[in-house]
Write a protein that binds this DNA or RNA. Sequence first.
DNA 1: CGTGTAAGGAATTCTGACACG
DNA 2: CGTGTAAGGAATTCTGACACG
Lengths: 107, 107
Amino acid sequence: MAESTSYKERKVITIGVVSELTGLTERQIRYYEERKLIFPERSPKGNRKYSFADVEQLIDIANKREEGVQTYEIRQEMIKAQRKEEKKNRKELLRGEINARFGIQKD
Amino acid sequence: MAESTSYKERKVITIGVVSELTGLTERQIRYYEERKLIFPERSPKGNRKYSFADVEQLIDIANKREEGVQTYEIRQEMIKAQRKEEKKNRKELLRGEINARFGIQKD
DNA sequence: CGTGTAAGGAATTCTGACACG
DNA sequence: CGTGTAAGGAATTCTGACACG
């Protein structure tokens, strides 16, 4: 249960399909990577591979770009959201540890 | 909620990636299609596209082939399983219709 | 039957660059 | 800044066919 990743996260989609799915050009998709908004994996020979989560992320980016938001600002928002996420995770981890010692006893 | 298909069912994976994911050669994957064991979609220009469900189906096929089961037999099993599935669906549909008329009233 | 392979062509993807605004 | 495009090359995919067992 740490072996596989969910369908949503597996990086298996090529850039051409992502382009169809998002309506973005390949040029745009590559540029957003350059601006660190998206992080595809690479196949052995260098082809980009995206997940469904990436596709959704790109759709969000496209929407923000249409509103005139610059890639730099989008990146800042992403970083902010990420920090919030990490904070939440640390909290849950801590709670887990406390439970492990003082909570529900197994044994 | 009849618009999109789940990640598992969306046909977005190219044959090269499927080959990596399943350990099968492209030749094998195409042949299993010829034998009607798998049904990829096609991109506008004719490239095969598979879903995660297809990948799992192919792994099942690979396992059966290793046991020496022939493609024809695998196909028969698939058809049988499909019939069972359809029967279940008809049952549920019927139950749904009965409920709609005589069951929980809305209005 | 199931799979490998060489063949030839078409489509895909990649990078780095120039263009425009 | 964000995107288009032409360029050249490498990798991908496709089909139909011959081979072997």
